[in-house]
Write a protein that binds this DNA or RNA. Sequence first.
DNA 1: CGAGCTTTTGAAGAACGTCAAGAGTTGTGG
DNA 2: CCACAACTCTTGACGTTCTTCAAAAGCTCG
Lengths: 244, 244
Amino acid sequence: MTYTDAYERLIKTFTPRDDLSPDDVALLRSMPLRIVTFGKGEEIIAQDSEVSESCLMMTGWTGRAVYLESGKRQITALHIAGDFVDLHGFTLKYMDHSVVALTATQVAFVRHEELKRITQVSPHLTRLLWLLTTIDGAVQRTTIASLGRRPALERLGHLLCELDCRLAVVGLADEHRFDIPLVQEELADILGLSVVHMNRTIQELRKGGLVAWQGSKVVIPDFSKLAQFSGFDPRYLNFIKRER
Amino acid sequence: MTYTDAYERLIKTFTPRDDLSPDDVALLRSMPLRIVTFGKGEEIIAQDSEVSESCLMMTGWTGRAVYLESGKRQITALHIAGDFVDLHGFTLKYMDHSVVALTATQVAFVRHEELKRITQVSPHLTRLLWLLTTIDGAVQRTTIASLGRRPALERLGHLLCELDCRLAVVGLADEHRFDIPLVQEELADILGLSVVHMNRTIQELRKGGLVAWQGSKVVIPDFSKLAQFSGFDPRYLNFIKRER
DNA sequence: CGAGCTTTTGAAGAACGTCAAGAGTTGTGG
DNA sequence: CCACAACTCTTGACGTTCTTCAAAAGCTCG
């Protein structure tokens, strides 16, 4: 993963949503990046810390984890290549969650001074960065609706539909086949379930024929069927090009 | 509620988080507002609609509601005076949720052209508006953690602590006393519970002495006790002044 | 006073969690 | 290349939390 790749990755995060002017692209490329590798299980950002840079995912999977006093953990979001995991840290500074590497990972850190510079020279790019955080909010709302009102089976189906869509956009899913490099305990922490019930829910979804899932390989034989079963409507992901 | 009040309300939304320059204030006051009244139960913004203005709450309570195919409803957020309910609509345009008036309500609509104008002339005010949406995201993460990992009783306690803090900042709570103008069905839709279990959970919290709650009047006799019981840590609300 | 809404209660059942243990898999060191 | 340890997945049994259904009681407002 070279610096050139990193800038390309960043540019490709915007282009499904709006066109970038040559000036926008040049401005993005002018930002110094710090590329760092993390091993599986390592903590990239600590909960309750103060931050002065934000990180863009290059490879691997990360999650935002909230640790409760009870010792329980909730993973509030999953992130893959192209996701600006903690862009909200630019405005918030205070991190209400940790960021943990769920697989070996490469990320590019951008200093907040650089982002601030963008806000001072490019209103358009500023709105696009802002957009990334509001899309994140839309995903979070969908997660809230799932946790609050969908039973475990639909909740899992909905997550698989979302991951399929997001992975496809960055070339990591093809014909509804993709890799989920997560253990069931992590999936349980995402869906708010116990590990045992997570296991039984996966088995039930498999048995129903809605997904084929062996090891980390997932295949969704009939996407629209799973989407309908899970109440999945991709519009909240905002993969639509318009003037922003 | 006059126009002057509306601008004051808007300004007071920022000041707990950062100071505004005279230019910032003048710019805010230059935005045309459209003040509208809604009756209890009315829909202010429809789910799946396209929007070209965003609304700031003046009086009353609103909620963001997601309606699922199953007929179930999840209220993903509550909003009170000073909240910019759908500021994310400025960047997203597509509304993945509805906004519903939970009480009689006055809101001020700001056209997106005006917000765009701000992004073109004031990087600082742009960052502050952006901040409001990222704080919203932090609240959503906390909601996800509650729904995923807290049992009903703690979930309710946590909500009450959050409301106490937020209402106090806008002068609607004093000495941990405030009004919750919501019926138990609405609370159930916020906490992801059935109405019956919502009722029993409220009773249990009352019985435990953690809250006094009769009709819509809530009193938290020992806030830190309830906060500890519920795992509430107000830092995610970002009521802290710093350079943004 | 009555209609409609909201709160409350009881009873039964479904969904999910916990505990415990066995089976399968992966990785590591000798 | 094998043996062992550690991790992960799976299963069974049982308990708890929460839901559903149904109905009664209380409240509000014309």
